[in-house]
Design a protein around this nucleic acid. Structure first.
Lengths: 154, 154
DNA sequence: GCTAATCTTGACTTTTTAGTCAAGATTAGG
DNA sequence: CCTAATCTTGACTAAAAAGTCAAGATTAGC
């Protein structure tokens, strides 16, 4: 249960694209990488994940670049995080942790599983309340908003 | 943002210890490993993490084993998860993701960071509401309890 | 059509996490 | 005091995640 590199840097790239999209410009790979102080190769890899998930679109060739597929207000963090690293705990795969067997010993009754399900559910309900548009705000503004709104709306 | 092996299997071992502790028995390494279908070596490693964090105590020598250091009702999941894998996002280390620099580009203002902080805060507040005693219940009972109580008490 | 600026892809290397192995320390009970 | 049943530890190997490299495809503008 940790924020992964792919989530963190993938989201940063997406936010760079969002910033230019609202100005009606395309974001170039090189521009994104420079802004985020990362290599273009790594940025390219992350952007390809975002593109394959239809969060962004790319235009190839000279004067090409990336733009959001939808409005920033229509892209919610729960979707972004699922694209970048999947669910916290996959509902149909307690098989992720089968011990040394094919099948988990606890398949019939597992109190741990029910905690993961609840936590995962609430977590993604939280993330669903935050959009890329929110993330384009300044930190102090967003921070206040999150404190006021996040839990209340669960 | 995924449940790690260490969290899952570590918690399973801890729960095995808890089951015997409430019966006033010591849990042996071999017993725990057999019950969870894992190797004794791996169980040993996880139990040593739990022991170093003072969640369990061990008795060496013949007729030795493990027991909880506290009552199951006094051990909360937020602590267990922190022991097994740390915070979701370390407050004092945006340095975890500095890009190709020493210092993160966004150190002064980072909307992403404020989301991680909020989410992490709520997540551990949730986990704090669940104790090992709760986890000793049957899945269906616990599941109902979680649905009713978890969010309400935030 | 050439060229330079762009995106695309898959194989590769490095780092981290997961899991194993083996040698050793402790102690109850005979 | 010996032995068998325990726990302990650190080094090692395997698997997964992170990040790099290199070759190639596309297209605007000359």
């Amino acid at each position: 249960m940790k924020i992964t590199s792919q989530e963190e840097y993938g989201l940063r790239c997406l936010l760079q694209v969002a910033q230019l999209t609202v100005k009606n410009e395309l974001a170039s790979l090189e521009g994104i990488a420079k802004a985020e102080h990362m290599t273009t190769d790594y940025a390219a890899k992350l952007l390809s994940i975002l593109r394959n998930a239809n969060l962004i679109e790319s235009v190839r060739g000279k004067s090409g670049g990336y733009k959001l597929s939808r409005l920033p207000s229509e892209i919610k963090l729960d979707e972004v995080i699922k694209v970048l690293s999947g669910e916290l705990f996959e509902v149909n795969s307690c098989e992720q942790f089968p011990g040394n067997d094919d099948k988990c010993v606890h398949i019939d009754c597992c109190s741990i599983r029910s905690v993961w399900f609840s936590v995962s559910h609430i977590l993604f309900a939280l993330l669903k309340q935050v959009t890329l548009e929110d993330l384009l705000k300044k930190e102090d503004l967003l921070s206040k908003y999150l404190k006021k709104e996040l839990i209340l709306n669960l």
